[in-house]
């Protein structure tokens, strides 16, 4: 049985289709990433799974329970960490943890092994008010609180948004550590580079799932060759390239330009194309497509 099975799910707010015709299965024990830009519908999908929202049509089953009817059974097995910091800032670290443990009918000690790795760095600050913690520590505390009752399904809504790069990596390490503890994890994130850390991912945009699967597998489905171009005139080059081919073939990636050419285009031909624009090129090389490149390609088509 799947941990989560979503069938033809729709959810609209006023005229905005937050979740549009989504079907998805997530296996038990999987670390599943829900990846997409802001406003893609990730939070709505999370809330639908958490039984906090009702589907307009379609269905969501969590461990075989329907979110509409059996929400009580679902909520017993669920750990949920909303996108916003959702602990009590006026309670101390320890009080927050104790409160959530008691609410879920357990004690801190019983499942301490689960949160030990995450909570350890917080222990010296356990008398500090949660509102006075740094961003990374708040996330650790929130995760500890969501984990304290050893849920079978852990929903993490953009846990790394607004957290510095080092804390982000730490956080993913912690999630990797939770795998194999008979826990299914569903994580949403706008950061494409986090996709490779998941077992499987779903790319989401405008309420739709564009593609789902193993991140490595998704990358092999990239069509064409991808070129990384470095130039001081990055924007003019992008415009010239797109104009030349009459469609969007180039996109910005950090300080570089990523240009997708047809699969049969050789490097000589590529250089030839670039030369005719009379724009100085610092470097040119072929690269492996990342998830972001895949996302952009799928989103364009």
């Amino acid at each position: 049985m799947n941990a989560i099975s979503i069938h033809n799910l729709h959810k609209s707010f006023a005229s905005n289709r937050a979740v549009d015709q989504v079907s998805l299965n997530i296996d038990r024990g999987e670390l599943f990433g829900l990846i997409g830009p802001d406003g893609a519908g990730k939070t709505s999908l999370m809330r639908l799974i958490a039984s906090l929202l009702l589907p307009d049509s379609g269905s969501v089953h969590v461990f075989g329970f329907d979110t509409r009817r059996d929400y009580r059974s679902i909520r017993k097995q669920l750990g949920y960490m909303p996108g916003r910091f959702s602990l009590y800032p006026d309670l101390t670290v320890e009080e927050n943890l104790h409160f959530w443990a008691t609410v879920f009918g357990t004690t801190i000690d019983r499942h301490y092994h689960l949160i030990e790795q995450i909570y350890k760095p917080l222990e010296p600050f356990k008398k500090r008010k949660a509102g006075q913690l740094s961003g990374g520590m708040k996330q650790k505390l929130a995760l500890s609180c969501a984990l304290i009752h050893s849920p079978s399904l852990l929903l993490l809504d953009e846990p790394t948004t607004g957290v510095d790069a080092v804390s982000r990596m730490e956080f993913w390490d912690m999630l990797q550590g939770l795998k194999g503890k008979d826990m299914t994890l569903l994580v949403s994130t706008p950061y494409m580079d986090e996709a490779d850390l998941c077992d499987r991912i779903a790319l989401m945009q405008q309420g739709k799932i564009l593609s789902a699967g193993n991140p490595h597998h998704l990358r092999t489905q990239f069509i064409g060759r991808l070129w990384e171009v470095k130039t001081p005139q990055i924007h003019p080059l992008k415009q010239r390239l797109n104009a030349h081919f009459g469609r969007e073939v180039a996109h910005l990636f950090g300080q570089c330009l990523h240009w997708t050419s047809q699969a049969d285009m050789s490097i000589d031909k590529v250089e030839q194309v670039l030369e005719q624009f009379h724009i100085p090129i610092d470097s040119l090389r072929e690269i492996e497509p990342g998830i972001e490149d895949c996302f952009i390609q799928i989103a364009r088509s």
Partner: peptide, 13 residues
């Protein structure tokens, strides 16, 4: 407002 209601609702309370 703080979003804690979301988590309270999901809890067995």
């Amino acid at each position: 407002e703080m979003g804690t209601m979301e988590v309270l609702l999901v809890s067995p309370l």
